[in-house]
Amino acid sequence: MVQYFSNAFHYDHPWANVQMGMWQKYPNPQCAHVISVDVLNRSVDPQTGIIRTERLLGCKQAAPAWAVKFLGGTADAYVREVSFVDPHSKTTTIHSVNLSLSDYLTVVEKITYVPSIAFPKTRTTFRQTAEIQARPKLWTSVGAKIELMSLDRFKQNAIRGKEGFEGVLRKLFGEDNTQEA
């Protein structure tokens, strides 16, 4: 019993700008209302130049309030996020998983940002997948219900996250690029 979600769209900003924006505000559907962001580890690979960053995102609990109460969770939820930014291949991959309530439910999200094939200099393709799975600890029928509710929440936040991030990019780099050039 796993719920899947996938999504793809583009940002009308060059890959490098999207990456710079990412550190300032990153649209994580698991963390629509960010309270805190901390960098736990960061390294630059001497051979490949890939930057690995492990961050801890604190957010207002994304699970439905009744579920949090039922499972004995807290108001704040935390997400571990590991990203790899490869400046050479211009590929960013981000993996995030919830830490809070993870005994009951895991939401694994994977994101990639690459330059668009059609407009590599001005447009960035975003791909996102999520796997939402209730753990055996959770009573089956309740588990199924929570999986579906989490999926709904994730979908809503994915849309909000895209809109929010577009706003940040506009603020940082001006209006979206036009596609002539």
Binding site: L40, R52, E54, H95, L99, S100
Partner: peptide
Amino acid sequence: LDDLLQQAREENPLLEPE
């Protein structure tokens, strides 16, 4: 959070990009 983080790291260290 340190136990939860440790658990997540053990499950998936993510030392290299997939």
